[in-house]
């Protein structure tokens, strides 16, 4: 069995979010990056299937040189090889452009399963995984909370609202976009990190994949014109002072509510 895992490297969840000079994204220089947390769950689910039987796990990511670090981490956790699409021509691509590149890789690799995270922690689009599936002709499911595989049929539980789950069956090959929390993500062991150095990492461009003319800002149909700090509503009344002074004032508020 071959499993492809799509990973995105995103700004670290604790990184400072300063708006870039052109006002269209954040300042990405000199901040830390990490694998998108949803995607770490996707990778873990693939590695669990590998642990339970025979599987080759291929990690795929798109982005500049820094992305090799994310792929090395994935290899260190147990992925067998990596594909890095490193192509300046992809700068400014929208979700559809990214999906076209990943769909081209899916067609080239013909995996039995494709795993991705439900959404990225930076753009929060949740767009790419089902788009990849549609373009590659695969069925897909999203917000997946459990995966079981038997005789070429995948049964998943999808998260709905209010604690409800929807049980869905799909044939392989298929794409699953996982919800966070469906497993406990492993750490890369020291041994794993050492072994990762010898694992293969292919570097490709969009042109290598035959979609060079469908990526980048020129092909994008969606453009972020401006990012800004959300306008504050009336906002909270701020209480300041020492811890004890703050506590006294809060107790006053709680008393007003009739709760003390």
């Amino acid at each position: 069995m071959k499993i492809l895992v799509c990973l995105k490297q995103v700004p670290h969840s604790d990184a400072r979010l300063d708006i870039a000079g052109d006002g269209k994204w954040i300042q990405e220089d000199n901040i830390k990056f990490e694998i998108n947390s949803y995607d770490t769950y996707a990778l873990e689910e693939a590695l669990k299937l590998k642990d339970a039987g025979e599987a080759e796990v291929v990690a795929v990511s798109i982005g500049p040189d820094r992305v090799t670090q994310a792929l090395r981490t994935a290899l260190g956790m147990g992925a067998d090889r990596a594909i890095h699409v490193n192509d300046p021509a992809m700068e400014g691509s929208d979700s559809l452009g990214i999906a076209k590149v990943l769909a081209a890789i899916v067609k080239e690799e013909s995996p039995d399963l494709v795993f991705a995270g439900l959404m990225s922690e930076d753009g929060n689009f949740a767009a790419v995984p089902p788009m990849v599936a549609q373009l590659a002709g695969l069925p897909s499911s999203t917000a997946v909370m459990s995966v079981s595989l038997a005789d070429g049929t995948v049964t998943v539980e999808r998260e709905l609202e209010g604690g409800a789950l929807e049980v869905v069956q799909l044939p392989t090959p298929c794409l699953l976009a996982v919800q966070s929390g469906l497993n406990q993500v492993r750490y890369a062991s020291l041994k794993g990190i050492m072994a990762a150095k010898k694992k293969p990492m292919d570097t490709k461009t969009a042109a290598d994949l035959g979609v060079g003319d469908q990526v980048g800002a020129g092909a994008a149909k969606v453009e972020i014109e401006k990012v800004y700090t959300p306008p504050r509503g009336e906002g909270a009344q701020l209480i300041e002072g020492s811890a004890d002074e703050v506590a006294t004032q809060l107790v006053g508020k709680i008393k007003e509510l009739g709760l003390l």
Binding site: D94, S95, L96, A99, N124, F125, A126, A127, V128, P129, P130, M131, V132, A133, Q134, L135, S140, S141, T142, A143, R158, K221, V222
Partner: peptide, 17 residues
């Protein structure tokens, strides 16, 4: 969020979520 991206991809359309 499960089917809208598929619709957009099939239409080769802009997709905003």
């Amino acid at each position: 969020w499960d089917f809208a991206p598929r619709v957009a991809a099939a239409l080769d359309a802009a997709f905003v979520t």
